[in-house]
């Protein structure tokens, strides 16, 4: 199914929850949705037989300088089509509903996004750091991150 059709069906179902649809050249076609309807939209995308997005390929935390965001790359193994969903949240209150209950693979991806970007996933059963040590401070992949000088008595800069 083409991205345009998926967008139209989602728009008919969810209305204002779909903020924009982008199919410009050099972009994989994506929809931007509101955070409060994200879980329902994802569930719809997985469970409706004509969408059948049973495979969450990638979940990326993003830093857009003014605010943060999460990008979901979906793929359907049976129907062989793909789709992209995006959400944007403010830096002051970066809370996104967790999709871990829809795709179990999101468990580790969301922990990584939390570890690197500091995005809080509401409803995640175990949202702790995954790559950095548990007592690490700061979120390394944010654009304004500054390296610490010392960690446990070891010098960090070269």
């Amino acid at each position: 199914m083409q991205a345009q059709e998926i967008y139209e069906k989602l728009k008919a179902e969810f209305g204002d929850a779909i903020i924009e649809f982008n199919a410009e050249p050099f972009f994989d076609p994506f929809v931007r949705v509101t955070t409060d309807k994200l879980f329902d939209i994802c569930l719809e995308l997985r469970d409706t037989p004509e969408f059948d997005f049973d495979y969450l390929a990638c979940l990326s935390g993003m830093d857009y300088k003014e605010n943060l965001g999460v990008v979901y790359h979906l793929y359907s193994i049976k129907l062989k089509h793909s789709f992209v969903v995006k959400v944007t949240v403010s830096k002051e209150n970066p809370v996104v509903p967790s999709v871990e209950r829809i795709w179990r693979t999101a468990d580790w991806h969301e922990r990584e996004a939390y570890d690197m970007m500091g995005i809080q996933f509401e409803g995640h059963h175990n949202l702790i750091r995954i790559l950095c040590p548990y007592d690490w401070e700061g979120f390394p992949l944010r654009k304004d991150y500054v390296q610490p000088d010392e960690y446990h008595g070891m010098k960090v800069p070269y």
Binding site: E24, P25, F26, F27, D28, A57, C58, H73, V84
Partner: peptide
């Protein structure tokens, strides 16, 4: 590359 984004696999 021009402004844009892509997921390759």
């Amino acid at each position: 590359p021009p402004k844009g984004e892509i997921y390759t696999k």
